[in-house]
Design a protein around this nucleic acid. Structure first.
Ligand code: DGT
Ligand code: MN
Ligand code: MN
Length: 336
DNA sequence: GAAACGGGCCAC
DNA sequence: AAACGTGGCCCGTTTC
């Protein structure tokens, strides 16, 4: 098709990932059609078809398994089926999420920590400007979205904000000018300039990164705010693996602390909701999903939010408020 | 026919 | 795609 040869993977085959095809789409009409097919085929095979095979004949429901030791950071993992990666991004994907419905007379209620790892970073790294932003109720994801994509805050869409989320976490977890430029399809110097300004606006991030890597080198582990250790055996590696090990060590205390917090909330939840007509159904890293008698939706939100927002206490007193966004509806898409 | 693996892609 | 992190599942290919 007169297209240039591209980059190859470790086996020598041409890479054809979505980012490659999106670029090629400017030169030929086929790549966009392949992407469309890939998206639909992913949704059909992984969700529409596979989820039906997981319906339990005894309950008529789909039940997942949680692996407590699933992730090195202390996050849970969900398997058979994984219910922590139900589509939400695309319109077609949301139709799959809509298939998760409450029983008659009940509602699904979702509670999700706001900007959770940015808040933890503000505390852990002692970033005054970021702490103040959260005390002022600011939405950093939306602010980054506004700056990077030129969308006014009062016209922000969930899709644009979602893309900014990847930028914020990319930057705080060590993305390079090269990587950010590739993601955003902007010149490398421009991407590096954004990263530099980010570290100036929130001084303390760079120092946190350096100190965390040094700690890992000295001890062979890092730890969450609650003192749980995460081992970093690769931290002394040489060559390309060194960079991966450093970034993993930088991420682990933050992602791990978020995992500790929601786990504490889950442990307290049964007692807190004992007198309410509801069930805790799922955990999705920083989100809890409940099935609730419709009359009790507001009461459950009040109680569960309280537990979640206070889950770090009393073991740790955070310098930033934890905030939880709540929603409800007949299905998971509405509740989210 | 199962297991391992890479590539790809869904989510947080 | 070498160059944010954490996962699991599907598909095609390779290997046994
Ligand atoms: N390193 C990394 N971490 C991510 C990424 N996406 C999500 N996470 C982590 C950090 C988030 O705080 C956490 C929960 O994801 P959410 O989608 O709920 O985003 P967050 O809580 O930041 O924002 P929001 O709930 O929308 O106010 O998962 C990512 O692209 N990279
Ligand atoms: Mn969240
Ligand atoms: Mn979430």
């Amino acid at each position: 098709m007169a297209l240039e040869g591209g980059k190859k993977g470790k086996t020598g085959a041409y890479a054809t990932g979505a980012d490659v095809l999106e670029d090629l789409a400017t030169e030929h009409e086929l790549p966009a059609r392949v992407l469309d097919w890939r998206q639909l085929s992913k949704l059909k095979s992984t969700y529409t078809d596979a989820l039906q095979d997981h319906i339990d004949p005894n309950t008529g429901r789909v039940h997942t398994s949680y692996v407590q030791t699933g992730a090195s950071t202390g996050r849970l993992a969900s398997t058979d089926p994984n219910l922590q990666n139900i589509p939400v991004r695309s319109e077609e994907g949301r139709r799959i999420r809509e298939a998760f419905v409450a029983d008659a007379g009940k509602r699904l209620v979702s509670l999700d920590y706001s900007q959770i790892e940015l808040r933890i970073l503000a505390h852990v790294a002692g970033i005054d400007a970021l702490k103040q932003a959260f005390r002022d109720g600011l939405d950093i994801h939306a602010m980054t979205a506004s700056e990077m994509f030129g969308v006014p805050l009062d016209e922000m869409t969930s899709d644009v904000r979602r893309r900014a989320k990847a930028i914020n976490f990319g930057v705080i977890y060590g993305i390079s000018g090269f990587g950010l430029a590739r993601n955003l399809r902007i010149p490398r110097a421009e991407a590096q300039g954004f990263i530099d300004r980010y570290f100036e606006r929130f001084p303390g991030i760079r120092a946190y990164m350096d100190e965390t890597v040094e700690f890992a080198k000295a001890h062979g582990y890092v730890q969450t705010l609650f003192g749980r250790r995460i081992h970093t055996p690769e931290i002394a590696a040489k060559g390309p693996r060194a960079g991966f090990a450093k970034r993993a060590a930088i991420n682990a205390p933050i992602q791990g602390t978020a995992a500790d917090i929601i786990r504490r909330a889950m442990i307290r939840m049964p007692e807190a909701i004992a007198d309410l007509p509801c069930k805790m159904l799922l955990q999705v890293h920083d989100e809890l999903l409940f099935e609730v008698e419709e009359d009790a939706v507001d009461a459950v939100i009040t109680v569960a939010r309280d537990v979640m927002e206070g889950a770090a206490d009393p073991a740790v007193h955070l310098d930033v408020p934890l905030t939880v966004d709540a929603g409800s509806g007949m299905n998971w898409a509405e509740a989210h």
